[in-house]
Design a protein around this nucleic acid. Structure first.
Lengths: 148, 148
DNA sequence: TTAAATTCCTATTATTTCGATAGGAATTAT
DNA sequence: ATAATTCCTATCGAAATAATAGGAATTTAA
């Protein structure tokens, strides 16, 4: 399971992508209220997203957050990695965070690793395709279906 | 990431599938030593696998564990669910453990859910295909490759 | 120039999960 | 009987998770 932090982050980003006409800063409290996220917790999350270059902020009165990158450039893989670390299910099949399994006899011929490598690759592909834009258009599509 | 418990369990199962000619019970200590798993920890794991119907055991002197099902019938998805719970990354896209996301406004039109539903389905498919037999044959393949 | 509204930053806390160990009861082969 | 083994319950420390607290810094606007 992904952490609540990641889930909240994705929801906040999608909200900003939807709301952001003209990149006006939107306040934490507004996002928190709309997306049902604990205010103070969201504060920390948005700060991390800003430090990671996905959001920008404006301080002081009438300040707030807005997307720094375009909705096509922000994907779920990136957000998950930021808060939950590697997407892979085994340390020996991650790219950036690679770590050998202590108990493993021979990584090169490990059938278990081979399975989890395939799973990782497929998952990362899907999550990289899942940009804010894609999420929004999926949602619109589902809305059409619902009306029928 | 999967837990060490799950990783140890898969390794133990693969070991038993490889070793089991004639279903003679193999002792915990032997498995623990061969697979580099803490003895007492493995004890608890094997017990769970037995209660889940994947292993059988024989008590007392010359006792031990052996596969209850055939290596084609035991897959990674089942083992992961036993120790780590749902495979899905969001509670709202699991089958057996379904739980609504508290903060969610409308599940039916949630684009985020839609993404994670696809990921779950793909992952579960791959992990169900990954039986002990498949793992062993993957490993044999990798061995052939290595020799070249 | 002061007040109000906001982000920024660091610390702290409670709860749960993870990885493992301890100790002995029950069972079985010899 | 004895030795070897699984079975079972309880416990423990460390880490991760989800959140809150409190105030410093910044900015707008009256």
């Amino acid at each position: 399971m992904i952490s609540k932090k990641t889930k909240y982050a994705i929801n906040a980003l999608v909200y900003l992508a939807r709301e952001n006409r003209g990149n006006e800063p939107i306040q934490i409290s507004k996002i928190a209220e709309s997306e049902n996220i604990p205010r103070k917790f969201l504060e920390a999350i948005l700060l991390d997203l800003r430090n990671a270059g996905m959001l920008s902020s404006k301080k002081g009165k009438a300040g707030g957050y807005y997307l720094h990158k375009s909705p096509e450039e922000i994907n779920i893989a990136e957000v998950m990695r930021l808060f939950d670390g590697p997407i892979a299910l085994l340390p020996c099949v991650t790219h950036a965070y690679y770590e050998r399994c202590e108990e493993c006899k021979d990584e090169a011929t490990c059938g278990i690793r081979s399975v989890f490598l395939d799973v990782r690759n497929e998952t990362v592909n899907m999550l990289k395709m899942a940009t804010l834009s894609q999420i929004i258009s999926r949602s619109e599509h589902l809305n059409e279906e619902k009306k029928k």
